[in-house]
């Protein structure tokens, strides 16, 4: 059976793909969220956001910016690794 299907290699591909294929979009998304900062609480206590109130004021602190930079940098490292993977073949 092992000659027909290599379960170990398939398992590796599955786990690694999930880690990178879903993890990188998550990192990128976290970066975007950090970059957006957080909504400034409106006077009435109503919370802007939840998809689409573009005119609501958002505030980005330096900490947000730093977090975003870290996220995007990690993504960039992973992409460079991907290209290296191709070159090393």
């Amino acid at each position: 059976m092992d000659q027909w299907i290599d379960l170990e290699a398939l398992g590796k591909v599955a786990v690694a793909s999930l880690l990178f294929g879903a993890g990188l979009p998550l990192l990128f998304a976290l970066g975007i969220r950090a970059l957006a900062g957080r909504p400034v609480p409106a006077a009435g206590g109503a919370r802007p956001g939840d998809g689409g109130q573009d005119d609501a004021p958002w505030h980005r602190t330096p900490a947000h910016l730093a977090a975003a930079v870290v996220c995007f940098a990690l993504v960039a490292v992973a992409v460079t690794g991907g290209i290296w993977l191709i070159v090393a073949g």
């Binding site: 999930l18 990128f28 998304a29 975007i32 956001g49 109130q53």
Partner: peptide
Amino acid sequence: VFAALVASVGTWLVYRTTRTVPEKSRTREF
């Protein structure tokens, strides 16, 4: 099957993470 699984998990995570981000900047950055 692998690809569909990975993409569905990734998509779900992305939407979950950015659901409060204003639509316009979200679209632009993505």
